[in-house]
Nucleic acid binder design. Sequence first.
RNA 1: GCCCGGGUGGCGGAACAGGUAGACGCAAGGGACUUAAAAUCCCUCGGGUUCGCGCCCGUGCCGGUUCGAGUCCGGCCCCGGGCACCA
Length: 756
Amino acid sequence: MLHPIGWAAFGPPAENAAIARGVHPAVWTYDNIAQMKAQLRQLGFSYDWTREIATCDPSYYKWEQMVFTRMFEKGLAYRKSTTVNWCPSCETVLANEQVEDGLCWRCGSVVELKVMDGWFFKTTEYTEELLEYTNKLKDGWPERVLAMQKNWIGKSTGAEIDFPLEETVGGESGLRIFTTRPDTVFGVTYMSIAPEHPLAAQLIKGKPEEKEALKFIKRITKQSSLERIAEGAKKEGVFTGTFAVNPFTGGRIPVYIANFVLVEYGTGIIMCVPAHDQRDFEFAKEYGLPIVPVIEPEGTKLRAEDMTGAYEEPGVMVNSEQFSGLPSESGKEKIIEYIEKKKIGKRRVNYRLRDWGISRQRYWGAPIPIVYCDTCGVVPVPDKDLPVELPLDIEFTGKGGSPLAKAESFVNTVCPECGGKAKRETDTMDTFVESSWYFLRYASPHFNEGMFDKKEVGYWLPVDRYIGGIEHAILHLLYARFYTKVLRDLGMCDLDEPFTNLLTQGMVIKDGAKMSKSVGNIVDPDDMIKKYGADTVRLFMLFAAPVQKDLDWSDEGIEGAFRFLNRLWRLISDRFPKIEPLKGKTPDADKLSVSGKDLLTKVHKTIKKVTDDLEKFQFNTAIAVVMELLNDTSRIIPAGDEDVKVVRESVEAMVRLLYPIAPHVSEELWSELGYKGSLVDEPWLEWNKGLVAGAAITVVVQVNGKVRAQLTMDADVSDEEMKEAAFADEKVRGYLAGKEPRKVFVVPKKIVNIVV
RNA sequence: GCCCGGGUGGCGGAACAGGUAGACGCAAGGGACUUAAAAUCCCUCGGGUUCGCGCCCGUGCCGGUUCGAGUCCGGCCCCGGGCACCA
């Protein structure tokens, strides 16, 4: 088993601290690491510190840079100019996954849309595989995480169809659109193109509408992503002055520029069917465009003038020439077959997922290993010159963009190919790139002939048990899956997926809100450790809620955990210090009193339950049963020496069962109990199967499904004996009142239900 | 709108595989110990009813299947999360 730890050490917080307080990001980062490390050690986590890594170390990011150059060579890393998400506060570009409701995931600022050059990873190369594997991960991943990823990938099937233009524009003789509803093609009454689409400006060139349309484009493209979303209700557009032709009807179709068309999705141009698409409907109403129904619900006639909204459900095709009368679902197929035969379009699958923009206009990150040469163009840095180290001698002003771009000695370099003057790329990589492969590095953290030792990765990976927060359901978990597949295809490993089982643990909540400095509801672990000790903190956190759920921090709750450990401590040090260690010898069951025997049974049932629960990560219930055992053990009054031994056995069991949860206290009590050496060297306890199976059982007797009596019986009781005992019971007889039972159900060793 | 979760005491949460609902803990109330307090220990703690034994009701709501439903099925309501002008 490998239980490693490391630090995602790059990122804007360190740089922001440098700007605000004049501390170098590196100093700030390593200070924080030292503090965190001390805290983790105090808490007694069993990390393998020999494998510790920090992603800001050049010996780490060097390999990431090398992989970048390989990806570049394969076209999986590429540069393009496009509309990107810009966070004005972080002063950097964000990937689509890092924008939440139009706001920056990190700082919450309103994200602006900007056209910029940047580097991208071609996640879309793996879209279908990423989607397909969500089905294979089903056994180990929470349903909702997979659902989120599927959602994010957003597969939709349909067709691309070419609509010829009346006259050629900018070298284009037609407009290609994507639709999921080819069955509605006879109802097209206009088309729309995204304002950002390069062809939009071409379509209006020289037209009377040009001036008006240009103004519109300018206004819309200036809006932030938040405005574009928020104004969702209001559909706006302008006529381009250009017409296309419906290839099915030959009809003349006006082309609009419309604010609701997304340039990045599909082809950035759509056919508009107001009768069967709500958005198209609203736009048509606004601009007085015709509405032509071509799908009708079975047995109903649709009339454009009566419609108050689009009819989006399936139905029967009408007004569609030879396709009329077909159900819309099979109509889709027929239309697609038709366009493929006539070569005016083709079947097409579209995804929402877009390529991962990894350029960050920030200093504290791994430099992108690229050099720009006037002669040779874009040149990747050769392996022998890696890593491209982040220069530490930098001035942080917080103004005017990335400090890297102003570091002359960094920027100016020579071209690795021609030796001439060249300039370095000054963008750094998104920190999610580092976190996309650190788990592989753990397999061979000190390997210096490559990113990782393939043999070691083959041995340790995939991760059997990956634990992280739900907030990375899409971000980190999608990127890591993608990156792993890239590494596989570069021949570096044989993994299809990095994480077999995923456990999304909850956050610690205080007063109904996520703990944060700005809200001021922070509970400092150091304070808690000082007051109660690490074990109390551990115990409480594991006990208060199942790991998957958020944990409500409660000052009273932690007191309860503290009380429990103290009770155990007192039981051992005050009441039973003089009894000799059992050293594995179990008391003689025959010499025990009834309560002694009950306790012995309880001890072994507890061992079984804790073992099972830990296996299932159900720490809260595991702790609860140990608490029960402590209650029972404290209450017993031993009837003889053999009973005392049971108490001793119970105490020893509790200490050992609690070891993974409260290691410090357990070790201490273990030696208090007279044992030498550490519990870490002791094997896990096993329960006595005979004792657990042979224990007396409670049989419930129901009359007409209602519980009327509880009988204590032997574990090997037969159905017949259960029945007899049930009918013999006085209380039960009272309920039967002499009536003949109509039926008797017996659940072996559990229940007798008498129906009268 | 679509897709996932989830609704159990005052609270956090238990309940294998349809078989005693509320384990364990917190809070609350009462009592013991103490000059007093803290700590500790004991009792009560879903609702109604009863002097009590007990009885009736109760797992968001309505219905169904079953000898028996928190658990299964159908319909609805509410809460949380994800996606969303995705053509």
